[in-house]
Design a protein around this nucleic acid. Structure first.
Length: 268
DNA sequence: AAGTACTTCAACCGCCGTGTG
DNA sequence: CCACACGGCGGTTGAAGTACT
């Protein structure tokens, strides 16, 4: 409809960002806010695709991004949430303030997958390591190099079904415009007596609807995280959802992680 | 010291749901 | 109602760094 086509990529820079580019992007967003990614590069004076700008901001430049040193508690939560949600990295990242979906995805693929495989070596009932069914199997690109496809993971596993029951969420796309229920409680209760297979879907919707911690967090003064009733909890309607505190004392509140996980289990 | 293998992670790719004209 | 752009997501890649021989 008269709109310009998506990034033509002609004359656009690719690869690692320079500090100058970072500075341009950061300053522009500081002044104008996020959004309008398509037109942002031009306005900011960047020779980058809008998608590339968004990615750089989300995964690197955004204030409050924590880098490296994923604590044992965070790791534990990632593993458990992955068991519930599968490869829904954005949802998982939403419960770990300061962590990006890309970082969690990388951490899972490089550290946790290896660790879990090692731990489960004698018995192959790994947690949900299956690919996300939401994604269609990627077709071979016409211009793809004839290299071998990625090595199949666990293809040598016996055909017998694993003993561990893994809850794989039904593949859906969720959006912030969700408004089917007026309260979190109603969602949860609705899920509790729903048909089998429905609950994870509800949970995914609920999770996506829950406030992602950092946008709110960083508007506050340092040390004061959360908007809420209790210091460490987010208030959603009548429901209080605990989230990880962004302070250095994360490890001091292990019980909070248990609470987070328990809440999700109740949803399912 | 040099070469090779392995690991990590930032960035890219392509698909999908939603909003809009 | 349709077609398209936009924003967002998960999967994958490959350069850079590190460990090993």
């Amino acid at each position: 409809m008269g709109r310009s086509p998506c990034c033509s990529k002609v004359g656009l820079r690719r690869g690692p960002w320079s500090s100058k580019e970072d500075s341009l992007l950061f300053n522009f967003i500081q002044q104008n806010g996020e959004g309008q990614w398509r037109s942002l590069p031009k306005k900011a004076g960047l020779l980058r695709c809008g998608k590339s700008c968004r990615l750089r901001w989300m995964n690197y430049l955004r204030p409050g991004i924590k880098r490296g040193n994923i604590s044992e508690d965070e790791e534990d939560l990632i593993v458990r949430l992955h068991g519930l949600l599968g490869n829904r990295w954005s949802l998982i990242a939403g419960r770990l303030p300061g962590r990006t979906d890309n970082e969690i995805k990388n951490y899972w693929n490089t550290h946790l997958l290896k660790k879990l495989k090692t731990a489960a070596a004698p018995h192959k009932d790994l947690p949900n390591l299956a690919p996300n069914p939401m994604k269609k199997k990627k077709t071979i690109q016409n211009n793809a190099t004839p290299s071998l496809p990625p090595p199949p993971k666990d293809d040598d596993a016996p055909a017998s079904p694993p003993k561990t029951i893994v809850c794989v969420p039904k593949p859906i796309r969720v959006s912030p415009s969700f408004s089917g229920c007026s309260s979190y409680d109603s969602l949860a209760s609705g899920a509790s007596n729903s048909d089998s297979g429905c609950a994870p879907e509800k949970a995914a919707e609920v999770l996506s609807f829950m406030p992602v911690a950092w946008p709110s967090i960083f508007e506050l003064d340092e040390g004061d995280y959360g908007v809420c009733a209790a210091d460490d909890d987010f208030l959603i309607g009548e429901y209080i959802l605990p989230v990880l505190n962004h302070s250095d004392s994360i490890s001091s509140d292990v019980n909070m992680l248990e609470k987070v996980y328990d809440e999700y289990l109740q949803l399912l």
